[in-house]
Design a protein around this nucleic acid. Structure first.
Length: 616
DNA sequence: GTTGGGTGTCATGTT
DNA sequence: AGAACATGACACCCA
């Protein structure tokens, strides 16, 4: 049986803890509840939205995810999200080839348009009166089939950003819509009514208020107050469009099932043969519901701590690349206890148990703390006085999480060691170390033997050298008192040398203990920092997912509204317009115009050139 | 017998 | 300069 190092049991002692790593990552703790998507966005949230939108566009999310062949990559994307999304760029542009089969794809923006796009639409443009041409600053809104209609990505105009993202998706939607119109069954009223020649020269700048919008205003309010308050187009040259079937549409229109209305499951391959009744969602891969739930659950577990075990398990699942093992034993209580031990050097429970055992043991091993007050050193059982309390942190790491277990320290004392291994045989008093065969004697002898074993090497040496005072005094007395003590006795040179060695070793032993304690505390703090960073990471990831989810919903709404508006537009003959030849364009003044696609193309190219010119 | 954790000690550098 | 302190390295003990 051995003893616990009593140096750790005493109270008192100064703690000069210099832990430079404690505040290493303190700045990362951002205790901020996730803001509701789209509401009360703080500056940080806006920045995050910007980043996410950049990622969306840069990643080409509007392209590849349209195709079901790319849905197969969703799992990879989910995995990326679990990894923190740092590697999200890897899947950028992967899915363009599928669309490229049937579509002409803008290599940069991913915008696609049917390869069989009418080639002679230029004549339309020529026939269009110049005054009907939308202003140059018009933003190409929801003109999916336009080539080169990428909106300049201006972060200062976040709504335009949103529109541009939506455009990427609406591009696909409108392509689908065009196919609906072109390839609808014969019985379809739209197709039967449609007979507009592709190159019919018509001024088709249409004020939406001249068309029937039915009951969609509430949906408009969802995406743009500008659209909601569309001014009446002042262009007298615009042909009034005859609304048709608005009432019937009103009865069946629903913002939630518009996708099903406008996107039949089968499209003839030119657009997107995977666009089923559900809207193709470029974010589908990122927004897997299972992943969302997982993240939410994990975040709940981590942030709210409703179940530390589950939280830790989820955390381990979530972060497997961490070199540090964050075992579940690091509950907040254990951490705080550990932290408390580092800040407070007085542990009453340990000191009391130590003193009780020390009273029965003769050990005076010079494990003492920084305390230099004479009261401590005057106590014969002062061996328990220490500076740091390394055991407390150590217990945390040794799974002695329950502080109440510290009350069992008298038993734990025997964990320690008696490091007398390198003691010189001559220095040992042979009487102090009886052979093991003589151990089974009376209780007094057993106790004496036990106490002998508790003695450290220096204690044995001191006893052998007849040092007239305790090692505690030797070690803990201040220099002045120590020298004064030495002056009181007539000591030989050997004795003085031994006393100085004892003092040196005793202090160094305490220093080593403190050093190890600090090392443990540093590790614990680093682990806690890792946990904090993981918590922040999970929170940011959850916020990102929330934003993406909200963005997807807005995209769907805008797509539906676009299709609804465009589908209801009728020319003077009551026939629908071809999506391949006309597009709605969102003007800067809030009006929405129906223009030929060639015009939209030209404007888009103009706008595309402008930023480049500015760069020059 | 091996291994990992705990401990004491030494050497060295810093305060 | 000396004392105190900090720390890496090493050896040893023990489970």
């Amino acid at each position: 049986m051995t003893r616990l190092d009593r140096s750790s049991h005493g109270g008192g002692g100064h703690v000069k803890s210099s832990r430079p790593l404690n505040s290493l990552l303190a700045g990362h703790r951002v205790a901020q509840p996730p803001s509701a998507p789209g509401s009360r966005a703080s500056v940080q949230d806006i920045d995050l939205i910007d980043i996410l939108w950049r990622q969306d566009i840069d990643l080409g999310a509007g392209r590849e995810v349209f195709d079901y062949s790319h849905r197969q990559k969703e799992q990879d994307v989910d995995k990326e999200l679990r990894d923190g999304g740092e590697q999200a760029n890897t899947w950028a542009g992967e899915g363009a080839e599928a669309l490229a089969r049937d579509l002409l794809v803008d290599g940069e923006t991913g915008e696609s348009f049917p390869a069989q796009f009418p080639a002679n639409v230029a004549s339309i443009t020529e026939a269009v009166p110049s005054e009907s041409e939308p202003p140059a600053l018009q933003n190409s809104l929801l003109s999916p089939l336009l080539t080169g209609t990428e909106s300049p990505f201006d972060l200062e105009q976040q709504w335009q950003d949103l529109m541009s993202i939506m455009e990427m998706q609406a591009m696909e939607v409108n392509t689908s819509a065009s196919e609906i119109l072109y390839n609808a069954p014969p019985g379809d009223p739209l197709s039967t009514n449609y007979s507009l020649a592709p190159n019919t020269p018509i001024n088709q700048n249409v004020s939406l208020h001249q068309a029937s919008l039915g009951g969609c205003s509430q949906d408009f309010s969802l995406f743009s107050p500008e659209v909601e308050n569309l001014p009446v187009a002042n262009s007298s040259t615009l042909l009034p469009l005859v609304p048709s079937n608005s009432t019937s549409l009103n009865s069946t229109f629903s913002s939630t099932n518009l996708a099903g209305l406008f996107f039949p499951p089968q499209l003839n391959g030119t657009a997107n043969d995977t666009a089923g009744p559900e809207l193709p969602d470029p974010l589908g891969g990122l927004l897997d519901e299972a992943m969302l739930d997982e993240i939410s659950l994990m975040d709940l577990a981590i942030e709210e701590g409703f179940n530390p075990v589950q939280a830790s398990q989820l955390e381990e699942e979530f972060d497997s690349d961490s070199g540090l093992s964050l075992d579940s034993s690091h509950s907040p209580s254990s951490l705080s206890s550990s932290e408390g031990s580092s800040s407070s050097s007085s542990s009453s429970s340990s000191s009391s148990s130590a003193s009780s055992s020390a009273s029965s043991s003769f050990s005076e091993e010079g494990a003492v703390g920084y305390s230099s007050d004479s009261e401590t050193v005057d106590l014969e059982e002062a061996e328990g006085a220490v500076g740091y309390q390394p055991e407390y942190s150590k217990f945390c790491r040794m799974s002695y999480q329950d502080p109440s277990q510290l009350s069992c320290l008298p038993y734990l004392e025997h964990v320690g060691h008696n490091h007398t291994y390198n003691m010189a045989p001559s220095a040992l008093d042979s009487a102090d170390l009886p052979p093991p065969s003589t151990l089974k004697k009376g209780s007094k002898e057993k106790q004496a033997d036990f106490l002998d074993k508790q003695m450290s090497r220096d204690e044995h040496r001191a006893r052998a050298m007849k040092i007239p005072f305790t090692n505690d005094k030797i070690i803990n007395l201040p220099v002045e008192e120590f020298n004064e003590l030495l002056s009181k006795y007539q000591l030989s040179e050997a004795q003085l040398s031994l006393i100085r060695d004892i003092r040196r070793r005793g202090k160094n032993k305490m220093a080593a203990q403190n050093c190890r304690k600090r090392k443990l505390d540093t590790i614990l703090n680093l682990e806690r920092d890792v946990e904090d960073l993981q918590r922040d990471k999970a929170r940011l990831l959850r916020e990102k997912v929330e934003f993406l989810r909200s963005l997807r919903q807005m995209k769907q709404k805008v797509q539906s509204l676009y299709q609804e508006v465009f589908g209801r537009l009728r020319d003077e003959n009551g026939r629908p317009y071809s999506p391949s030849q006309y597009a709605l364009q969102y003007a800067g003044d809030g009006s929405v115009l129906l223009i030929p696609r060639t015009m939209a193309d030209q404007q888009a190219r103009r706008q595309e050139r402008k930023p480049k010119d500015r760069r020059k």
